[in-house]
Amino acid sequence: MSLAYARNDWYVIADRNSLEQGPRRTRLLGDEIHVSGSYAHPVIKDASGRMLPTQIKFDHVWTTVGDRPRPLFDIPEGNEPGRRLVPCGMVRVKCSPLRAVENFLDIAHFPFVHTDVLGAEPYTEVEPYKVEIREQNDEVWATKVKFFQPLAAKSAAGGITTDYEYRVPAPTTAVLYKTCPPKPEAQDVITIFVQPRSETECDVWPWMALYDDDTPYADLVQFQQMIFLQDRSILENQRPIKLPLDPRMEIPTRSDLTSVAYRRWLKKRGAFYGALAETL
């Protein structure tokens, strides 16, 4: 049942860089996938040799293994003039794809996991914010999130209170909008596309759409990779490995509103791939 739902979503399985390195094998939803061709004309096949549909979007190659795939969501900011689009490569994490998304939606860990970068003690308090399920497109949104950050982005000179919004358009994708230090009226967009290799292992493909023409590409990628490697040290040490949907198994507090909404939303949809739907 969980697999049936997951099969009909679209997933990133490559970017331009990985395709230019020649044919490769990867995994999607527990099965092997063969990736070849060029970025303009990718060729994706499952283990039996069946051709899978592809589309290029947000600087990545997407595929689906389902018979009736849901349409791929849009991230309209990616088309806004003046934004710099930054695919950040891939980080492999031995964790549930859903735990990777949930961690991305969480700010309370910044002072402890991304110490002196995205947060620092004693600035640990999370002010009340707003979470809703937007019915028109059935997405989780968290708005009016604020957090003090000593070094929020490559373009930030010192500590600032950063405004955040989070959007979950699909179970394995999370989009973050945050204060853009050099352009306070605009928001930078940072996204993770999570490729579920299995229920307990995933490839995370970060992608950014920034107002930042100055920072060298390598520095931007290195900054994101550093953040994700710090997150990985957490994600590979959570038990159970799958994300529990029963709130009695992991006790939330007020600052976990986004995580609570995300878990409920997964449960309501029946998006159980990578989740623990029952109580242990």
């Binding site: 309370a108 860990h109 402890f112 640990t124 308090e125 507090t253 600052s255």
Partner: peptide, 19 residues
Amino acid sequence: YHGWHYGAEGGVCSLIPSH
């Protein structure tokens, strides 16, 4: 992960830094 404190006497949570 989030800095929650648990006391040596009984393992009860004594601090949630986000609140």
